[in-house]
């Protein structure tokens, strides 16, 4: 079982790596990060703040685009194009397929994000003339971005387990946007009260709490991220990802392939 998971994950990684789209995306992200110091010139005095905000935004955005498009592509495309037939006619359980895909994607994203992060650190070092002790916070921000990507990948796989590639991508992206406003949703719920308040509050627990994993503004100002937050975010992301994958397995396990 573990050998099969590793094989599926490795093949997923190989597929992603051979996809030209991926290189274009990573290239654009790096370009955006590299261009950030130029923007900094415009806003004198806040070069580094601007740079960090923009760089982290670029990494999370491109990471999510990769997670969603490659994620929905890799799973629902296999169903749509029936490449899955020859895999599932082998001693591969459906849940192994889902989990293997997820692991392969996570590995792909880890490599991509590391590339983008390396570029980001080079740019930060350039702007602020060397790295400083406070820049450890940037690593924390990157770690939390990684958590967001883990969650988004699991969601992308969940949606592809029952929907077409385009719908899966659209659903996932909607979840990403809403997930960034979970705290605003709760604020709104607290303000409006009544049944619609409860409804919004309930919904806010269904979408991933990505807003809480976004600390770009803080770290841009050199503020540390509390350990408790890192811990809670980690637990939340892992729970959410496992829940999404379990739901994907539940759906996929009973589904007729087309």
């Amino acid at each position: 079982m573990r050998a099969r998971l590793a094989l599926i994950a490795a093949n997923t990684f190989r597929e992603a790596v051979r996809d030209r789209v991926l290189y274009n995306l990573v290239f654009f992200a790096l370009l955006m990060v590299a261009a950030a110091p130029l923007f900094g010139v415009i806003s004198i005095g806040v070069e580094k703040i601007f740079m960090v905000n923009l760089g982290l935004a670029a990494i999370v955005l491109f990471g999510v685009v990769i997670a969603i498009f490659v994620g929905t592509g890799l799973v629902s495309k296999e169903i749509e194009k029936r490449t899955l037939y020859t895999v599932l006619a082998r001693p591969v359980a459906r849940w192994e397929f889902i989990l293997g895909k997820y692991l392969g994607l996570a590995a792909t994203l880890a490599v991509n994000t590391s590339c983008m992060a390396a570029g980001f650190f080079v740019a930060v070092a350039y702007v602020s003339v060397g790295l400083h002790a406070a820049d450890v916070n940037l690593l924390v921000a990157l770690y939390l971005i990684g958590l967001q990507l883990l969650v988004m990948t699991a969601l992308a796989i969940l949606f592809s387990s029952f929907s077409t590639p385009i719908f899966s991508a659209a659903f996932s992206f909607a979840m990403f946007v809403i997930g960034n406003f979970v705290e605003d949703m709760r604020g709104f719920a607290a303000m409006s009260g009544g049944p619609e308040g409860w409804l919004v509050r309930g919904l806010s627990y269904l979408v991933p709490n990505l807003g809480a994993m976004n600390v770009a503004a803080q770290v841009a100002h050199g503020q540390p991220v509390p350990g408790a937050l890192i811990l809670a975010d980690t637990a939340n992301a892992l729970f959410y990802a496992v829940a999404a994958l379990a739901a994907a397995v539940l759906i996929f396990e009973r589904r007729d392939l087309k």
Binding site: N11, R14, R82, T83, Y85, T86, V87, P91
Partner: peptide, 25 residues
């Protein structure tokens, strides 16, 4: 199993595909 009009991973070569599948089996 050979499916009707087999769709195979087009980013692989036949040899890579077979090695992968042999591993899965």
């Amino acid at each position: 199993f050979l499916p009707e009009q087999p769709y195979l991973y087009d980013y692989l070569t036949p040899l890579e595909l077979l090695e992968y599948y042999a591993g899965l089996s």
